[in-house]
Write a protein that binds this DNA or RNA. Structure first.
Length: 799
DNA sequence: GCAAGGTC
């Protein structure tokens, strides 16, 4: 009988998957490393009876590192780590003996099915497993396929069985992208950390950290904290004024009203409003409203939400909370605590989990009532396809767990019960009053049914004094109207919970690594944890981040130098220029516009990457070669010319290829197609500021090598999408002369570029110069001339 | 002494 080896990402998953596939009919034993188990059962595979062996790794098998000799801080230049120091793959955790374990289990197997997590890291681990196992597996007969990848999005019967029925192949490109990330993380992290550490050591006497680390996750994490610090520092408080009114509702009761204008920033204006209202004796009811509102029950719990609450409500740092959750998990009190999913799987036994809590001393009543009256359907959350949400797995008491473990368990359990409870319903009453010309409002909430807030009392709608019953037109005596002077206040330092939210939003780290990064910036003394678990950056943290901002501002890499093929820095400050630090050369650029990289296209003459100059959306733009712009390549070119004036005979960006015909206004210019302007296509003069807008929404416009029989201008070849074509009939394509073709007449409009100086404008119909056409065409191509009565013809076409 | 990712 043949054997199928199956490998999951971690032991717990191997067990769950094997249980599903074997329908609980399997035999299990521990592997040689003591961490992984092997679950065996028989079944059918590829139409034959087989023995299945389901096991797992423990995350990554391999890790990337530099060769040992590069670990000597004093002997190796950090720059070497960055660019050339060789790396090697090592076993990630030598104690686990993972490669040997996989080989022992894989020896003599005929097929392998990879059940690694369905994300990039999982795809990468697939190939780590294959590297270890393929050499010891039985060789395939002929071309039979032996390697399979199972793709699943949740650990449910249907999903796992479907995955088994539709096996695919591992994705090598995804795995390679992880290899690339690993190498970048390693090189950037190690090179910059060593460089920074050595650079700062001894330079600053008050430096209070022996290791100044840098990393693609920890540095942005610190960045968020310093960003908030900067906001606090640059905050300028403003004084504002508020009117506050009191009305008497009963003999000894009064009601505080909020001003509908909220606040004003001008004292005299506030005083004016006060004068208009303070002498009024009565407040008249304008409107009353009562609305039933609901406060939604929470979504099922995932890791980041647990960490947020642990920090903000329980005062437990993420690292500590995660360790505590980990322990609760291994002791069987809660489900797997690392998950992004907030949606219970379809077959999740909600009632079963609830029943376990039915005799708990703290919440038995709530649970029993839910069980007898029926639970509420949980809200639809997000299924990330990793693990079910975090839930209690069995009942536990405070005495049993104690301390933080109990507090975290209690929260997880209350949260779980809340997800199957009803929403909290309350009545929001609002009364709007008029005092003189000004409107004031008061509103109050009264709970209709507490729903989930009974089990999460900290979420309760606060008790408020009930509002008087009244209707439009009723009047109340005004107690007083007064003006309060207040000041806007700066934001406070970031709370850990806010930081977690920011990291999640910007994709910094993962559910499993977010606590590690936050811990890192604390340990490195970049931030300190203040009361309320707010993160206050230290001087060191602030100086580092401000330094990075400065480095980034002094010139960012834009395009590659044609000589050394390294990136040149773009210096935006005038005169804007490109600088190649390796060749120590500076290239000036056109001023007063924006410069972008032009699709990484290169000049055929010197291999410099082209950049695109643009004067804005209403102006013109053209590509240029930084080298040619400073060193004209042909005798008929001058310094400061872009590709739209370049006479290269065959380059696709040159005047020769994109020029159409002589400018309609100036003497020496040529109208050149701006190939980057679509879908609002433009043809612009390469000397003056004439711009023709044409063929809007065409998806392609090309300059043809054919010329107009009448005026010898180059023909344009224009393609429209079917839905947007303005061409007659159902045509989507047309070739013709912009000057002479009657169909194109309608589609061309002449303008002047927005940002050019008016002094440079030529008046239409002034002169008639020598025909020049499309610049210097390749030999053999006709040299188009300007039509004799061109200006009169254009008067009809343009404008 | 360093990174980030996975997990135990």
């Amino acid at each position: 009988m043949k054997t199928v080896l199956m490998v999951a990402e971690k032991p717990s998953l191997a067990q769950s998957i094997a249980k599903i596939l074997s329908r609980g009919n399997m035999s299990s034993h521990k592997g040689l490393n003591g961490a992984c188990s092997v679950h065996e059962y028989t079944g059918t595979f590829a139409g034959q009876p087989v023995r299945f062996k389901m096991t797992s790794v423990c995350g990554h098998v391999m890790t990337l590192d530099f060769l040992g000799k590069y670990n000597k801080w004093d002997k190796v230049d950090p720059a070497e780590l960055f660019s050339q120091a060789p790396t090697e793959k090592k076993e990630a955790n030598p104690k686990l003996n993972m490669v040997k374990f996989l080989q022992v289990e894989g020896r003599g197997c005929d097929y392998i099915v990879l059940w690694l997590d369905c994300d990039k890291e999982g795809e990468n681990i697939c190939f780590e497993v294959l590297d270890a196992v393929l050499p010891v597996m039985n060789k395939a007969h002929s071309n039979e396929k032996t390697v399979f990848r199972a793709r699943f999005s949740s650990i449910t019967d249907t999903d796992i069985c479907n995955a088994m029925a539709r096996l695919g192949e591992p994705d090598h490109n995804e795995a390679l992208s992880v290899d690339a990330r690993q190498e970048l993380d390693l090189r950037i992290g190690c090179a910059f950390t060593r460089f920074q550490t050595k650079y700062f050591q001894g330079k600053y006497g008050d430096l209070d950290s022996s290791l100044i680390s840098f990393g693609p996750c920890q540095t942005p994490t610190l960045g968020f904290c310093v960003e908030r610090h900067d906001k606090i520092q640059s905050f300028k408080p403003e004084t504002y004024w508020v009117l506050q009114a009191k009305v008497n509702t009963d003999k000894d009761k009064s009601l505080l009203l909020d001003w509908d204008r909220v606040r004003v920033f001008d004292r005299e204006i506030a005083q004016m409003f006060l004068n208009m209202t303070k002498l009024e004796k009565e407040a008249q009811v304008e409107t009353t409203s009562k609305k039933e509102k609901a406060k939604q029950r929470p979504l099922a719990l995932n890791t980041v939400e647990m960490l947020r609450v642990a920090s903000s409500a329980l005062g437990m740092g993420p690292q500590h909370a995660m360790q505590t959750a980990e322990r609760l998990y291994t002791q069987g009190y809660i489900s797997y605590p690392r998950t992004e999913t907030t949606h219970y799987p379809e077959n999740f036994d909600l009632k079963g989990s609830l029943r376990q809590q039915a005799n708990h001393p703290y919440w038995a009543d709530t649970v029993k009532r839910l069980l007898s009256e029926g639970i509420n359907r949980p809200r639809k959350g997000h299924d990330a396809g990793d693990h079910p949400p975090i839930t209690p797995m069995r009942s536990a008491t405070e005495a049993e767990l104690g301390g933080d473990a109990w507090r975290l368990y209690e929260y997880i359990t209350r949260h779980f019960i809340a997800t199957v409870s009803h929403d909290c319903k309350y009545l929001q009453s609002t009364i709007s009053f008029r005092i003189g010309p000004e409107l004031f409002t008061c509103s109050g909430k009264t709970v209709i049914s507490p729903g989930f807030t009974e089990i999460m009392p900290w979420q309760s709608v606060p008790l408020e004094e009930s509002l008087p019953t009244c209707q439009r037109g009723d009047t109340f005596a005004v107690g007083e109207v007064k003006m309060l002077e207040k000041q806007t206040s700066p934001p406070d330092y970031l709370t850990e919970a806010e930081l977690i939210t920011l990291m999640e939003k910007h994709g910094i780290g993962t559910d499993a690594s977010i606590p590690v990064h936050i811990n890192n910036i604390c340990q490195r003394n970049y931030v300190t944890v203040e009361s309320g678990r707010r993160l206050k950056p230290t001087n060191l943290g602030i100086v580092l981040v401000h330094g990075y901002y400065k480095i980034a501002a002094t010139g960012k890499p834009l395009s590659r130098c044609g000589k050394c093929h390294r990136f040149m820095k773009y210096i935006q400050a005038k005169p804007s220029r490109l600088h190649c630090s390796h060749c120590d050369e500076t290239y000036t650029l056109p001023q007063n516009g924006t410069i972008k990289l032009y699709k990484e296209l290169r000049c055929p003459l010197d291999d410099f990457e082209l950049v695109l100059w643009s004067s804005g959306s209403r102006g013109k733009s053209y590509p240029l070669c930084p080298y040619c712009y400073n060193h004209p390549p042909f005798r008929d070119m001058k310094k400061g010319m872009g590709c739209n004036e370049c006479t290269h005979p065959t380059c696709q960006h040159s005047l020769s290829m994109l020029g159409i015909g002589q400018c309609v206004e100036c003497e020496s210019g040529v109208l050149v197609l701006d190939p980057t302007s679509g879908p609002k296509w433009k043809v612009a003069c390469n000397k003056c500021n004439v711009v023709a807008h044409c063929f809007e929404n065409a998806h392609r416009v090309r300059v043809s090598s054919d010329t107009c029989n009448t005026c010898e201008a180059a023909l344009l070849d224009v393609d429209f999408n079917k839905a947007k074509s303005p061409l007659p009939g159902d045509e989507t394509q047309h070739t013709g002369c912009v000057f002479c073709d009657p169909i194109f007449q309608e589609l061309v409009e002449l303008k002047h570029a927005a940002s050019c100086h008016p002094m440079h404008r030529g008046g239409p119909g002034r002169r008639q110069g020598r025909g020049r056409g499309r610049g210097r065409r390749p030999p053999g191509k006709p040299n188009p001339k300007r039509p004799k009565d061109k200006m009169s013809a254009l008067a009809a076409y343009f404008v």
